[in-house]
Design a protein around this nucleic acid. Structure first.
Length: 230
DNA sequence: AAACTCCTCAACCGCCTACCG
DNA sequence: CCGGTAGGCGGTTGAGGAGTT
């Protein structure tokens, strides 16, 4: 079956945008706002797919874009947010005014990944690579002894969210930032929603569902898809 | 100076989800 | 409740610029 294309591809331009196209898009959005992307190209006189217009506007033409190099503070904030949110680029971008999800995603893949590897930190898990190696070795030993029940299905790391979450800290950029893998027991003993702490609006990502924890510790964490309250 | 390799980032693709009738 | 549609997102690609041989 397949899905229907988002627009009539036979009559749309692709590839890099020309100055004229940019100007058409800007002047149309200035005059009418950025409402319905599907009908916008036709109304603006552009031979482009609506999605393409949206992307061009959001990632390149929006007047509030910052552009230019990322600061060290932005670097650290991205790393910290990525540790908490994973590859949720749009959410991360929401905390960096003037930056787009695409820009952050590109910057992560080209710069920050390398930076973290140089620090000896795994970019995906934000844990020290040495510790991961050690873990792999011991897991391999467990496997060879026939116990595979404690592993993740994909053979990857056993990511325990309880252990991989830490409170956001305001570390200085120079400080080598340890992975946000502190245990809950080292955290302040108070109910705290990390998303709210970071300034996310509840409509953005946080539903502030309370997960009861033993010993009177209750940690509020927005449930991810597939995550269950025990 | 030319050829080649590497790197960056704008743009595309396809999937997911919210919304609406 | 269901199906269709549009918007949004993350992963990936590829053009072109920069650097190297």
């Amino acid at each position: 079956m397949g899905r229907s294309p988002c627009c009539e591809k036979a009559h749309t331009n692709k590839g890099a945008w020309t100055k004229e196209e940019d100007e058409k898009l800007i002047s149309y959005i200035k005059a009418h706002g950025d409402g319905c992307w599907r009908s916008l190209p036709k109304a603006a006189g552009l031979l482009r797919c609506g999605k393409s217009c949206r992307l061009r506007w959001i990632n390149y033409l929006r007047p509030d874009l910052k552009r230019g190099n990322f600061t060290a503070q932005e670097d650290e904030l991205i790393i910290e947010l990525h540790g908490l949110l994973g590859n949720k680029w749009s959410l991360i971008a929401g905390r960096l005014p003037g930056r787009t999800d695409n820009e952050i995603k590109n910057y992560w893949n080209t710069h920050i990944k390398r930076k973290l590897l140089a620090r000896g930190v795994d970019p995906q898990t934000h844990r020290p690579i040495a510790a991961l190696r050690q873990e792999e070795r011991s897991t391999a030993q467990e496997d060879s002894s026939g116990d595979s029940s404690s592993r993740d299905g994909d053979g990857g790391l056993d990511l325990n969210l309880d252990l991989s979450i830490s409170l956001p800290r305001h570390s200085s950029p120079e400080q080598s930032s340890p992975p946000p893998a502190a245990t809950a027991s080292t955290s302040t003993m108070q109910a705290l929603c990390l998303c709210c702490h970071l300034g996310f609006q509840s409509s953005e990502t946080c539903s502030c569902r309370r997960i009861p924890r033993p010993l009177g510790f209750s940690f509020i964490w927005p449930l991810e898809e597939g995550q269950r309250i025990a």
